[in-house]
Design a protein around this nucleic acid. Structure first.
Length: 969
DNA sequence: CCTCGAAGTATTTTT
DNA sequence: TACTTCGAGG
């Protein structure tokens, strides 16, 4: 019964349940993924299910990888590989590749990513001279598709002119994708549903289906789940309505009730204990989420002590906020006696664009960071260019890709010419490629006049693609690697010269991205890997049902599909595992931080317009988003709000944080840190206690050991102070009067259900080194008593307050009213959108209407963990590293800018009980980050700033590129 | 008809 | 900041 070790009663019940259909509702940090993985292992070990008959769906690649990793520790490498585990989309693609012929789908379909879709839409809209943003159109189409409505059905329903126009766009979109043999993200799921409905045999082997983050499923995904499970109806889902943050992607929270209706025997198990966050953080988060009055009350039990009080800080400007944030990171790292290091800190943002200031401030301070999200590697212009060539070679009917590359690099074929040719091709109902090939080969004459240079350019383009295809299909050279093809494209199209001309000083970085693409391709084409992948990709054979197995010729297709689904191949980790050289602060959107945790979490820009976002239509969802962000924190949570935004306009603090009573859950400034606090932190994080020396050293390394530079009211510091550089202030004086006591609270003062670990006892048992510390400790103890009292009152207040609220909404209908309300919001919006979705007026003339039409816009900013992307490691390994240089700068202090990291201490105790640590702890983190030796970087402020700027422009983050490339011009 | 430079403007979240 | 649009010159 090894796999039940360390699970609590509710988790055990969920894992071993006999129920066929099981819902596990699990709040943040309650070990949801752990429960799901243990259930998979349990089904294999104790119910003798075959791993290859189990389907497990997640929403993100990241989650899939993590789960695979965890399952591996339970059932071993061999079984883990056989489980069908992946994102909905990835699994759908597998089925379509192998059984697509049964629904008339060729093997060589391409996947349209959102930029493809948008390009198609843009053309359609332009052609019809409609005024709607392609992004808005795309999301509207998607929301229709996901509900199983196609353009024909929509056209029948359409009454208003706008609706008819939209139906027309929709119809043309469908036709164009089909002509290009492309499936968009929604099509993947829909087609897969269709396949399984018409050919249930293909899932007749499936014994169990498990879904993670079920609250984020949309209708199609729900159907997919149902269809996967159609033979045995054995389903386990885990989810949490409070964390539903994807309704913009048509996630339907009422799938939970729908499921219960569909399978009346559904068993629901609630997990209630939070193993992640300190009590104080949990209370604050809980208070925020309870502002949603339609939400059914839910228990959430802390298992940790109260810990440090969360902070809600006001600052004058976004720039000041960033500077403050960095100084707090430094203060935390130093004053925790190296218990916490930069890689334990995360900055979570509502929108990726907010990262700019923060990145600049981190760079300026010399703190390394990595940005999750922003422009993905595969979205960068130069990489996409190469990929488009590959896509065309693989599948020349892809009109979109052909159109994009036909004149890049310039072949003197202009827009007008392209348009003419495109229309002609369409009229002849052949693909663009077939048409231009015939024109170029003289088999066909074009009505569009071709200037001599254009004709020549066209010929050279056709030649490139043809030779690529020849190479791909040639039988004699038994192994055509993707790398060879890339090389061919680069040589024939002279992309190197193109990049040189086009990007000039950015050329090197651009080129190195292409080199990385090649490295990635080489890796993906490694024969062993290909064989392994083939096996993994193959679905179990089913008697009497034709299956097309992937062959080696599909290497290119599979490579491209993986790219489209951001499956950036497997993580490389076998080599160089021990070197995790830089401790980086993580910057991420809240959305992509879901499921993750960090000891210290910052959520900046908490003002109205950011959270809740001005373009968001559902305030409750925004609140849940904030809740998700807050509950990522284990030991320390900082929220902050600049009172002026980047445009220097006044802001209002997020309405979620100005509700009555919220303030009592937060301090107005960062905590004072005593040695006792540091020890307490270590206890919450279950890490080694800091040494007293480390604490003292840390303290000495700081200019300022209190968060007292910026006034609490968010105003600028006094004028004469402001003109000094922060780092240079020789004798920093507190900007506000009293230094508050450390806000470490002892667990005993507050009834928290579970005993947990008493930070108070940790405080007392810490060894004292000096009289001063002894004194500090005594003072501390007195203060603790006072603070405990204060927090008791707070707690009482909040309990009273929430009781009142709960009473109002208690009763049977709770959950359904809750869903009904959400549904109502959704339909209202839908109707509003339909009514005035777009207009022929220019957008600027009708701002109000435009706002509405923008409701559904989602920009194509993808998130991709660099860490997850093997390229980053590859890059760090291979990039020429230049040690940071010291430059005399007027602005830098005499010590330069310093960043500290913790010492490589891993005690025997820790080594001996790793499983203890991961299971008893119950947190989502199994392994501590590798601890590193102290490093000091002294760098030129300006060079760092430049790097930050350049990094952004390229979509390459300094952490990824600039850090390693620093010094290259 | 093509290219390039300048100016203006908009900036959620993701498979 | 990045992307689009607009206008002049080849």
């Amino acid at each position: 019964m090894d796999l039940l070790h360390g699970l609590n009663a509710a988790q055990k019940a969920a894992v071993t349940s006999d129920a066929a259909v099981l819902q596990v509702l699990a709040p943040p940090g309650s070990g949801k993924t752990k429960t799901l993985t243990a259930r998979v292992a349990y089904l294999i070990a104790h119910r003798s299910l075959k791993p290859w008959n189990i389907i497990t769906c997640t929403f993100t690649r990241k989650a899939a990888n993590e789960m695979k990793e965890r399952i591996r520790t339970f059932v071993g490498e061999e079984h883990a590989k056989q489980i069908k585990l992946g994102t909905f989309h990835a699994i759908a693609v597998q089925y379509l590749r192998q059984y697509g012929q049964h629904i008339g789908l060729g093997k060589d379909f391409g996947i349209a990513d959102s930029s493809d879709s948008k390009a198609v839409l843009k053309r359609i809209i332009k052609r019809n001279s409609f005024t709607i943003e392609p992004g808005a159109a795309l999301s509207r189409i998607s929301s229709q598709k996901v509900r199983g409505i196609n353009s024909e059905q929509l056209a029948l329903k359409a009454k208003h002119i706008e609706q008819q126009e939209f139906a027309q766009i929709f119809a043309e979109y469908e036709t164009e994708l089909k002509a290009s043999n492309l499936l968009d993200y929604d099509d993947l799921l829909l087609q897969c549903c269709f396949l399984m409905t018409t050919h249930p045999q293909c899932v007749s082997n499936v014994e169990a289906v498990l879904i993670d983050e079920f609250q984020d499923t949309n209708t199609t995904q729900y159907d997919l789940m149902r269809l996967f499970a159609q033979k045995r109806n054995m389903i386990t889902i885990v989810g949490d309505p409070d964390q539903s943050i994807y309704s913009f992607r048509s996630a339907e929270i009422q799938n939970l009730t729908r499921m219960k209706e569909h399978w009346p025997d559904t068993l629901t198990i609630n997990l209630e204990e939070n193993y992640r966050s300190s009590g104080a953080i949990l209370h604050a988060a809980q208070n925020i989420i309870e502002q949603d009055e339609s939400r059914p009350p839910k228990k959430l039990q802390a298992t940790h002590g109260l810990g440090l009080c969360p902070v809600l800080r006001k600052l004058p400007t976004a720039a000041a906020e960033a500077t403050w944030l960095v100084s707090e990171i430094q203060r935390m790292c130093a004053l925790s006696g190296k218990v916490v290091n930069p890689s334990d800190c995360a900055v979570l943002l509502r929108s990726a664009a907010l990262s700019r200031m923060i990145e600049a401030a981190l760079s300026k301070a010399g703190v390394p960071y990595r940005m999750v999200g922003g422009v993905r590697f595969f979205e960068r212009a130069e990489v996409k260019l190469v990929l488009d060539y590959l896509r065309v070679i693989n599948q020349p009917d892809n009109n979109e890709a052909v159109e994009r590359i036909i004149n890049v690099p310039s072949r003197r074929i202009g827009d007008a010419t392209i348009k003419g040719l495109l229309n002609e091709a369409k009229a002849k109902s052949t693909s663009f490629w077939t048409f231009i090939r015939e024109v170029s080969q003289g088999k066909c004459r074009s009505k569009t006049k071709l200037a001599a240079p254009a004709e020549k350019g066209l010929a050279s383009f056709v030649n490139i693609i043809l030779s690529g295809r020849r190479k791909l299909t040639s039988v004699d050279s038994d192994k055509v690697s993707v790398v060879d093809l890339i090389n061919l494209v680069i040589k024939k199209a002279d992309l190197q010269a193109y990049l040189k001309n086009h990007y000039e000083n950015e050329y090197e970085a651009r080129w190195s991205n292409i080199e990385e693409l090649m490295a990635l391709a080489a890796d993906a084409c490694d024969p062993d890997k290909v064989r392994a992948m083939m096996q993994e990709e193959t679905l179990p054979a089913i008697d009497g049902f034709e299956q097309r197995a992937p062959t080696e010729e599909d290497a290119l297709s599979i490579f491209l599909a993986n790219v489209a689904l951001t499956a950036s191949a497997e993580e490389k980790k076998a080599d160089g595992e021990e070197s995790e050289p830089v401790q980086q602060v993580t910057i991420s959107t809240i959305h992509s931080a879901k499921g993750l945790e960090w000891p210290v979490v910052f959520i900046p820009a908490c003002f109205d317009g950011s959270i809740p976002h001005s373009r968001s239509d559902d305030n409750d969802e925004e609140r849940r988003l904030l809740y998700v962000g807050m509950t990522r924190a284990q030991a320390m949570l900082y929220l902050s709000c600049p009172i002026k935004n980047t445009q220097r306009e006044d802001t209002t603090m997020s309405s979620f944080l100005t509700q009555p009573g919220v303030g009592s859950f937060f301090e107005e400034h960062g905590p004072s840190m005593s040695f006792a606090t540091a020890t307490g932190l270590a206890t919450t994080l279950k890490r080694d206690r800091p040494s007293h020396d480390a604490f003292q050293d840390g303290k000495k390394s700081l200019e300022r050991d209190e968060d007292d530079y910026w006034p609490l009211n968010g105003e600028e510091p006094p004028a004469e102070r402001a003109k000094w550089d922060y780092g240079r202030a020789e004798n920093p004086l507190p900007a506000f009067g009293t230094t508050r006591p450390a806000s470490w609270m002892s667990v005993s003062a507050v009834s928290m259900g579970q005993e947990g670990f008493s930070s108070a006892s940790a405080t007392m048992s810490a060894g004292f080194v000096s009289v001063k510390d002894k004194y500090d400790e005594l003072v501390e103890r007195d203060r603790l008593a006072a603070i405990d009292k204060r927090s008791q009152v707070r707690r009482k207040e909040s309990v009273e307050a929430s009781k009142g609220r709960k009473r109002q909404i208690e009763g049977q209908g709770c959950i359904s009213t809750f869903f009904a309300k959400r549904r109502a919001v959704a339909t209202d919006l839908e109707q509003e959108r339909d009514k005035s979705f777009y207009t022929r007026e220019p957008a600027s003339v009708q701002p109000a209407l435009r706002d509405i039409s923008n409701l559904g816009v989602h920009r194509n900013v993808h998130s991709q963990s660099l860490e997850q992307n093997p390229l980053s490691k590859h890059k760090l390994r291979n990039a020429p590293y230049r040690a940071p240089t010291t430059t005399t700068q007027v602005q830098s202090s005499d010590r330069g800018y310093v960043f500290l990291s913790s010492s490589p201490t891993k005690t025997e105790e820790e080594e001996n009980q790793p499983s203890e640590k991961s299971i008893c702890n119950g947190t989502e983190r199994d392994v501590d980050p590798v601890k590193q030796a102290s490093t000091f970087h002294t760098t030129s402020v300006q060079s760092l700033q430049q790097n930050a700027v350049r990094g952004r422009r390229l979509g390459v983050r300094p952490s990824f590129n600039g850090w390693a490339n620093r010094g290259r011009k």
